Lab assay of single mutants.
Amino acid sequence: TETYTFDSEDQAEEFAQRAQKKGYTVEKRKENGKFKVRVE
């Protein structure tokens, strides 16, 4: 499980979609103005 942090929602969304296409489970959340994407 890895967590990635992005400054913009667009970046987080793009990353999450790519990860989902590769078959990963993706969980997105906003925390302290940053966008976190957890991938497993």
Rank of each mutant, 00 (worst) to 15 (best):
G33D: 08
E40V: 15
E14W: 07
E13R: 05
E40P: 04
K36V: 15
Q20W: 06
F6N: 00
K36G: 04
G33Q: 04
Q17L: 09
V26Y: 03
D7M: 06
K30R: 10
V26E: 03
A16R: 04
K30L: 12
T3S: 07
V26M: 01
E14M: 08
T5A: 07
D10A: 12
Y4C: 05
K30P: 07
T1W: 15
E9H: 06
A16V: 09
Q20R: 13
Y4G: 02
D7L: 06
K21H: 07
E40G: 12
D7P: 04
G23T: 01
F15N: 00
A16I: 11
E31Y: 04
Y4W: 11
Q17N: 10
V37H: 00
Y24N: 06
Q20G: 06
T1M: 12
D7Y: 07
V37N: 00
K22M: 15
R18S: 11
E13T: 08
R29K: 12
T3N: 05
E14C: 14
V26A: 07
Y4V: 04
D7N: 07
K22E: 15
E9A: 08
R38H: 09
E2V: 15
F6T: 01
T25V: 12
E9P: 05
F35G: 01
K22F: 12
V39S: 01
K22A: 14
A16P: 00
T5S: 09
F35S: 02
T25E: 11
R29A: 12
S8P: 00
K21P: 00
N32A: 07
E40A: 13
A19I: 09
Y24T: 04
F15E: 02
R18G: 07
Q11W: 05
F6P: 00
E27D: 10
A19D: 01
E2F: 15
R29G: 09
T5M: 09
V39F: 05
T3P: 04
T5Q: 07
F15Q: 01
N32P: 01
T5W: 15
K28W: 11
K36W: 10
D10W: 12
T1K: 09
K22R: 11
K36N: 08
D10V: 10
Q17D: 10
K21T: 08
Q17R: 12
K21I: 07
K36I: 15
K22D: 14
A12S: 04
T1R: 09
G33R: 02
A19T: 05
Y4N: 02
E40F: 14
A12L: 02
K21F: 06
K34S: 07
V39R: 01
K28L: 15
E27V: 12
K34P: 00
E40M: 15
R18P: 01
E27T: 13
T3R: 03
T3F: 11
E40N: 12
E31G: 03
